[in-house]
């Protein structure tokens, strides 16, 4: 555990799956040198196998104080090869050749976009942006036999020392979110760095800053006026993803509300389209209370009453979403 912890809250009710965060991250950090297949930040459609494929079944995390075994995702089958496309034939030559990947693709970072689950008229899906959770109890750090992974005291950011890493990939297997990637060209493992060079200058992470939906809040957990403390501790509407993995993640999600399902006669049932059970699987038992609070506050706001929670989630001022400077007088 670090002296301070920087965290993120992602409001899934505002995520439109536009992948601006994905590209903001990719163009900044992972567009070269064997990282082409890596998405330190990506947005997957839930329900779905996600990225890497079936990451929720790949093991890792903690079983009490013991690391649970995990497996290594495969490049073509689980991540997806970064395919080249027939741009020349499709765009610059005469004819009807459609734009197609040149390599046979088996998977990719957004492979199941908008597929979701359920039958018409009760189909449902939502978007789940995912990045390294900069966990308080990181399994990756514990799994490394070389102590190549460390958690920074001043902000809890988890980093891989590229000088120490020898590409053993125990961290990749140990991370239950499969958010550490092995760079086969460099022979070392790499991961989201929570944009620490930006953070150190008081600039928010690229994924958060570029989010067009104003879905991402960034703050230190101990900053009582910050969104993390307010949404996680006070309002309890932001929940960790798969807390049962035991790593104590520091990216939190405001769970998605959904419209009513329809019965056989086409009448609204009053039950949410996204089954509560499914949300409990992802976000734990606190999801019921979180959704109830959200509904209650939305109703207040729609009646013209005050709702500090809604004001925070709406984020009238973009700058208010990011609280990177340290509170007066505190030292890391």
């Amino acid at each position: 555990m670090s002296a301070r912890q920087l965290g993120m809250v992602i409001d899934l009710n505002k995520c439109i799956g536009c992948q601006t965060c994905t590209l903001a991250c990719k163009s900044q950090w992972t567009d070269r040198g064997g990282r082409e297949f890596m998405y330190w930040n990506h947005v997957e459609t839930k329900p779905g196998k996600g990225y890497p494929r079936a990451w929720e079944e790949a093991g890792g995390g903690w079983d009490g104080d013991r690391l649970r075994p995990g497996r290594l995702p495969r490049l073509a089958e689980d991540y997806g090869i970064p395919a080249d496309f027939n741009f020349d034939a499709a765009l610059f030559k005469e004819g009807e050749a459609p734009l197609r990947p040149l390599d046979a693709m088996q998977w990719g970072p957004n492979w199941e976009e908008d597929q979701g689950a359920g039958e018409f008229p009760n189909g449902y899906f939502f978007y789940l942006p995912r990045l390294c959770n900069h966990c308080t109890k990181p399994a990756c750090l514990a799994a490394c036999p070389r102590q190549a992974i460390y958690k920074r005291e001043e902000d809890g950011i988890v980093l891989i020392d590229q000088e120490r890493c020898r590409g053993y990939r125990y961290c990749v297997a140990a991370c239950p979110y499969k958010k550490i990637y092995f760079n086969p060209l460099a022979g070392k493992s790499e991961k989201c760095i929570f944009c620490y060079p930006r953070v150190e200058k008081g600039i928010p992470q690229a994924c958060a800053y570029q989010c067009v939906g104003r879905a991402r809040h960034v703050a230190y957990l101990d900053d009582e006026d910050g969104a993390l403390h307010q949404l996680v501790k006070v309002w309890k509407v932001a929940l960790p993803l798969h807390a049962e993995y035991g790593t104590q993640p520091n990216v939190y999600y405001v769970p998605p509300l959904s419209p009513s399902a329809f019965d056989a006669d086409g009448k609204p049932t009053g039950q949410p389209r996204i089954p509560d059970d499914y949300l409990r699987q992802l976000f734990g038992p606190g999801v019921d209370a979180a959704l109830a609070t959200l509904k209650q506050e939305i109703d207040k706001k729609s009646r013209g009453e005050e709702s500090p929670l809604m004001d925070m989630l709406i984020a009238y001022r973009h700058g208010d979403m990011f609280r990177l400077s340290r509170p007066e007088g505190t030292q890391p």
Binding site: G34, L72, R74, Y181
Partner: peptide, 8 residues
């Protein structure tokens, strides 16, 4: 062999 196209 070391394989620049394999992660596993």
């Amino acid at each position: 062999l070391l394989d620049a196209r394999a992660t596993d």
